[in-house]
């Protein structure tokens, strides 16, 4: 199998800093996500992984530079970043609990390009996850955790993003469901050429589908490299792979 990987960066962060009020959490990090790549960010709890994703999508005070397809997005608000093709599935689902499954998908298409066919796209995700179709009139809040994560991913992709940010998609889910989700991610990457930036605690799974990875420690990048290198790195094996 050949992975197409033209070295054309979709996302390029240089000296990215992020803070909550006076507290700086990310201290100037550099990373790149190329077109068609799956990149994973590993790190312990509190390392700043979520914060990094939030900085990219314009949710918090950010400094330094982040270029999306060559365009500077630091300082832009999240609505503008999303409109430029970033979809972000936040940590802990991020569905709209009071809205029905179908309404969640509709809202997901809020910034979809004009060319997108809403009904067709919805049908695609209903085919992927028939359970969502069964529950389409139910509120999202009444779904199980796994179903909500499926909904969250589907909802994010309704906007036809160029880059998908996933924050710990495996959190709190049964292994079988997690595997299903990761298969979906791999499939999105292969079949649609979707670029993914994935934050994960489950390093084994994540490195399994990733091309490259970064390890974040206290808001700085400690290690980076090809997925296979990281998989064999002793420090990482100890800290994240539990071997």
């Amino acid at each position: 199998m050949t992975t197409v990987r033209p070295a054309e960066p979709v996302l390029e962060a240089k000296g990215l800093k992020a803070s909550y009020g006076p507290i700086q959490v990310i201290h100037g990090i550099d990373f790149v996500v190329n077109q068609g790549e799956v990149v994973v960010i590993l790190g312990a709890n509190g390392a700043g992984k979520t914060t990094t994703l939030r900085a990219i999508s314009g949710m918090i005070d950010t400094g330094g530079s982040v270029k999306l397809n060559g365009e500077e997005i630091v300082g832009k608000n999240s609505a503008d970043v999303v409109r430029r093709g970033v979809a972000h599935v936040p940590q802990g689902r991020g569905t709209f609990p009071e809205l029905t499954v179908e309404e969640n998908l509709r809202v997901g298409a809020y910034v979809a390009p004009k060319s997108a066919n809403l009904e067709e796209d919805m049908q695609y995700w209903y085919d992927q996850y028939p359970v969502l179709y069964e529950r389409r009139e139910q509120t999202a809040g009444s779904l199980s955790g796994g179903e909500q994560q499926m909904l969250a991913v589907s909802r994010a992709l309704m906007s036809h993003p160029k880059l998908l940010l996933l924050d710990e998609p495996s959190l709190g889910l049964a292994p079988l469901i997690v595997e299903g989700l990761f298969e979906q991610f791999a499939k999105l990457n292969k079949e649609r050429g979707m670029t993914l930036l994935v934050v994960e605690q489950n390093a084994h799974l994540a490195l399994g589908i990733a091309n490259r990875g970064y390890v974040l420690e206290s808001g700085e990048i400690a290690i980076s490299g090809e997925a296979s290198e990281l998989m064999n790195n002793d420090a990482i094996r100890k800290a994240y792979l539990g071997v």
Binding site: S57, M59, N77, S78, A79, V82, R83, A87, H88, P90, G94, T95, F96, P97, E98, L99, E103, R106, V107, G108, Y110, V111, R155, A156, S159
Partner: peptide, 23 residues
């Protein structure tokens, strides 16, 4: 569309920003 956006904002502020709604 605006009505749905309004309900989305009411339901989950952060996620509504992440789907591109101007809050």
């Amino acid at each position: 569309k605006i009505g749905l956006a309004f309900r989305a904002v009411s339901s989950n502020l952060e996620s509504s920003q992440l789907v591109g709604i101007r809050v």
